[in-house]
């Protein structure tokens, strides 16, 4: 059994795809104002990373062809389930009502045109974090549909995810046993790191790892996991190899200045092992297998990693998305047990 925790169906565009799922007001707005082309700047569809060459459709955007996705991501990679994370830019809009309307449309589209056609597919709920109350509404609207198994947010937003104004979102997610999937990608509000705006997309993509780390610190130090003990967070497309050194520094800094955050009553690394999961592609690891094994040991838990292909992004070649050097016991856990524990709404097959 193999559960692929991160695949990306492509969405052609607002007018080409979403119109039937928008209400009359937004249909008119989209048409009269030409509100289209919200593909995220983080993932230009034409760059090599955005689609493996042999997965690129002849026409249309990467991941947009249902038959290809089924043949390549599900049959080709042997997925028992695959979780769809749509990265069309509703999450990055400034207008909170536009964002909410587009999120609704995206969720209804993925349910009608993907989940309904393929029983192995599941999806994350796309929510407008620009307006946390509207994000909660969207979670509540879809919570009855068990095919939605997570809540998807971008790793670089307007404010850090631990902040109190987001807590109602986490309360709703916890109530409905939905983990928060924090995926690489940016609203482009602030530079990707403290040093400012980089020149190259390569730099931007490398910096996603630090954005994920900053979000983990925020969630932990603001006390989100103390307040919502049932909540899990999945860092998606974050890379993995930074995790041990990050845990050490988080522990050390917390030890030094924990007086500032007295509600954090145990080392951050322990909290991460209980509440945080990471998907395994891209696996930005050392070339030598022995070093991979050392790194896995340093993580100190076989529960944290979740198998993912990141289809159709070009992270690996061939038909096996499991990185070299992983011990067999970990492979079993990351493909089956860990996803089932993390995405609690996934039914284990009989």
């Amino acid at each position: 059994m193999r559960i692929d925790c991160d695949i990306h169906p492509g969405l052609e565009g607002t007018r080409a795809t979403l119109l039937p799922y928008l209400d009359a007001h937004w249909q008119e707005q989209v048409t009269s104002r030409g509100i289209d082309g919200l593909d995220l700047t983080s993932y230009p569809t034409t760059m090599p990373l955005s689609c493996r060459p042999d997965w690129r459709p002849e026409r249309g955007k990467p991941g947009s062809n249902f038959a290809l996705l089924k043949a390549q991501a599900l049959d080709g990679l042997g997925a028992s389930y695959a979780i769809c994370n749509v990265l069309y830019g509703a999450q990055a809009a400034f207008d909170p009502y536009l964002a909410a309307a587009f999120c609704r449309a995206i969720n209804d589209w993925i349910a009608a045109e993907w989940l309904a056609r393929e029983p192995r597919l599941r999806a994350s709920i796309v929510v407008p974090m620009q307006a946390p109350d509207l994000a909660v509404e969207e979670i509540e609207r879809l919570a009855g549909d068990r095919r939605f198994v997570a809540v998807l947010v971008l790793v670089q937003g307007e404010t850090l995810l631990g902040r109190r104004h987001f807590w109602p979102v986490y309360a709703a997610a916890e109530r409905h046993r939905l983990p928060i999937a924090v995926h690489s990608g940016s609203q482009y509000r602030t530079a990707p790191s403290s040093i400012g705006w980089p020149s190259y997309r390569l730099e931007y993509y490398i910096a996603e790892a630090q954005a994920h780390q900053a979000q983990l610190l925020s969630l932990i130090l603001e006390g989100v996991f103390g307040k919502f003990p049932g909540l899990k967070v999945v860092m998606m497309e974050s890379g993995v190899s930074w995790l041990p050194a990050f845990m050490w520094r988080a522990n050390k800094t917390w030890k030094g200045v924990r007086v500032e955050v007295p509600w954090v009553d145990r080392p951050p690394a322990d909290i991460m092992r209980d509440h945080v999961r990471l998907t395994t592609q891209p696996f930005d690891a050392p070339p030598a297998q022995a070093d991979v094994e050392r790194l896995i040991e340093q993580i100190g838990s076989e529960r944290m990693l979740l198998y993912a292909s990141d289809y159709p992004h070009w992270q690996f070649d061939g038909d096996c998305a499991i990185p070299q050097g992983f011990p067999a016991s970990l492979v079993t856990r990351m493909c089956r047990d860990n996803p089932l524990e993390t995405f609690a709404r996934l039914e284990a097959p009989a």
Binding site: R189, T190, A214, L221
Partner: peptide, 23 residues
């Protein structure tokens, strides 16, 4: 430099700001 210490905006705590030096 005028930029937020993280790619997700301004943190609340010195704990985060201190760590962001490594980032």
């Amino acid at each position: 430099g005028g930029h937020a210490p993280t790619g997700g905006g301004w943190p609340s705590y010195y704990n985060e700001e201190h760590h962001s030096n490594a980032h």
